[in-house]
Design a protein around this nucleic acid. Structure first.
Lengths: 357, 357
DNA sequence: CTGAAAGCGCTTACAG
DNA sequence: CTGAAAGCGCTTACAG
């Protein structure tokens, strides 16, 4: 008995009195092996509880059958849902998924990326902290590892991406508020996140709509957490020229703001209207129900993963550009949808107001 | 120029005109290498953009520095938060985290487990589908891989676990409802999940409290999704002997039920009271705010991961039993907390009712 | 159908 | 401080 916790292929070969090549063939399906031998080797494999060591296979040049995922946070419902979809797609292809979190910090992101490269993942799914990152693109190119970015594109690269129509969605949401007659619409974001592609696009959409209507845009991206949301709202609502509507550009923030308004006993939409970006559980059930711009979260994760596997499959074939459904910069756009509920000032409409699935 | 996308250690050695051992030493910190050589080798590493191939290291017997995680779903907020904590702890130890989902299916779980064993993960974090699973325990023992289970223990094994006091929390919640004077309290669960350890414990807690009060327990674990929640509630509320209180034993279910009651315009708690298991975003803000049994989700993930790394560290040292904080069966209990809000019938109390962090 | 042998890219005594 | 060489556990021509 060896000390090793795992039996090796050589152990099996010895026990079955065959060569290692034969055992290898058996493991890989049993082609070109006589029924007798096949049977015997399989029995030994079972007896020894033999599990091939992936490291050796990988070293021989096989694929690692591993995908790397880099997201800001898996605790964020948005990325949790994307991650689940990516893991499911990976599993269906027989791949494993390594999940890392960047916290939107480019340095952490790069660290994670390097680790994944050392691990020789076959492909990478990435929601990049910054849409411009030469170093990242360079590493990706040098490692020549297939990548798909999602939620946010990577500029100046040929990296395909799956991205929601953030600009359009935000513009539409803002226009909707404007159509209600609100004039002092403030756009709220979270601290340190205003440089994220998605938030920039949403802010740009907001600004565009405001400018079109000749209204003064006001953007505040100083909110940190629930407490600071409450503080900011107090300052706004009890200050001079208080806003009559709020556009919250991200899932958690909408909830914080709703909670804070609720606690401050501020009437929505009478005193201030509210529209959020990202739909969420209970958005249709709270009082008032919350109007939001909805993204296709699950589809985003799934599509990104499937795009990656397309590349993986095509990798050794013709390097066709694979632009199906993508625009000239390689972006697949996922349509957002304005879900009109009550917080924007629309009347309650039970048919619009039923809970989601 | 080789065809390989990655430079190898030998490439570096050749280019730097040193032996491979020296390069290896440089990579591993540079001990016992002259400053000159160190400098030169490092320059070449940079120039060639050399990244060690983990597979080769692993094959040489080094640890994979990888933890495997098996959860029912990462899209579930509970496990998403656990996963985030586990990933963060792993990262702080320089480890990568492979995330797999079992969907609570023991077969999928076993598949994932085998894949992770082949990958030679150094440790495993597991929320097991079933608390009794001989095959699983056997594989774990044979692979002699350190494991920590969480959310649910694994019986008949020495596997340490981190588990909430589900029984106690459910009993307390039910007692609270009883203390309000409710007599017909129904316990609702989701289809196919009644065999899960956590749900069994919660149901047991409910039953115990009911029996203590000489009330007839009624358990219904047939709910599939939002629609079936609505259907079930209709049947209950418009049927004979309708319940006057509901105990929902799981996060999503509480939300479904709240949404359905809301849609059916059933007054809470006047017509039926509601207590849920698991706190969630907006639970304190909806109207009425929802009384829940709260679990320490983040702590659970973190503690499980830390326990695992303790084992990893101690592995080659004395195999002391490591029972700090654990009971005789190796379970660390995490206290649940009843967060009293309005849906149980308690009066609104703003100090109890402020949004969480 | 079968097996001996080379080699994947590292690490690690060992000898200098 | 340095390097030649063996070996980790597989796969894969190659020869039989």
């Amino acid at each position: 008995m060896k000390k090793t916790p795992h039996a090796t292929l050589a152990d099996v070969a010895r026990e079955a009195r065959v060569g290692t090549s034969t055992v290898s063939r058996v493991i890989r399906g049993g082609a070109r092996v006589s029924p007798d031998t096949l049977e015997r080797v399989r029995a030994v494999i079972r007896k020894l509880d033999y599990q091939p060591n992936d490291a050796a296979r990988i070293l021989k040049g096989e694929r690692t059958k591993t995908i790397g995922l880099i997201v800001p946070s898996v605790a964020d419902p948005f990325f949790a849902i994307c991650a689940e979809a990516a893991q499911e797609t990976s599993r269906s292809h027989g791949f494993l998924l390594i999940v890392t979190c960047s916290n939107n910090d480019p340095r952490v992101e790069l660290e994670n990326l390097n680790k994944l490269v050392q691990r020789r993942v076959d492909g990478l799914l990435l929601a990049p902290a910054a849409s411009r990152n030469e170093e990242l693109v360079q590493i990706l190119n040098r490692a020549s590892i297939p990548v798909v970015s999602f939620d946010r594109p990577i500029h100046d690269s040929l990296i395909p991406s799956v991205v929601s129509t953030n600009f359009k969605g935000a513009k539409e949401a803002t226009r909707h508020l404007i159509s209600h007659g609100y004039k002092r619409i403030v756009c709220l974001g979270m601290k340190g996140e205003d440089s994220l592609y998605t938030n920039k696009e949403r802010i740009r959409g907001y600004r565009t709509a405001m400018q079109e209507a000749n209204l003064p845009p006001k953007v505040d991206v100083s909110i940190n957490n629930y407490e600071s949301a409450e503080l900011a709202l107090k300052a706004y609502l009890y200050g001079v020229n208080p806003p009559d509507a709020i556009f919250a550009i991200r899932n958690l923030l909408t909830i914080y703001i709703f909670e804070a308004l609720h606690k401050l006993r501020v009437r929505i939409p009478k005193k201030v209207a509210l529209v959020g970006f990202d739909d969420f559980q209970l958005a249709s059930t709270v009082n008032p129900s919350i109007t939001v711009v909805k993204q296709e979260m699950e589809l985003m994760g799934k599509m990104a993963a499937e795009l990656l596997f397309e590349q993986l499959t095509l990798k050794h074939q013709s390097s066709s550009k694979m632009t199906n459904g993508a625009d000239s910069s390689g972006v697949r756009w996922l349509e957002t949808e304005l879900i009109v509920r009550e917080s924007c000032g629309c009347r309650s409409n039970s048919s619009f107001n039923s809970p989601r699935k």
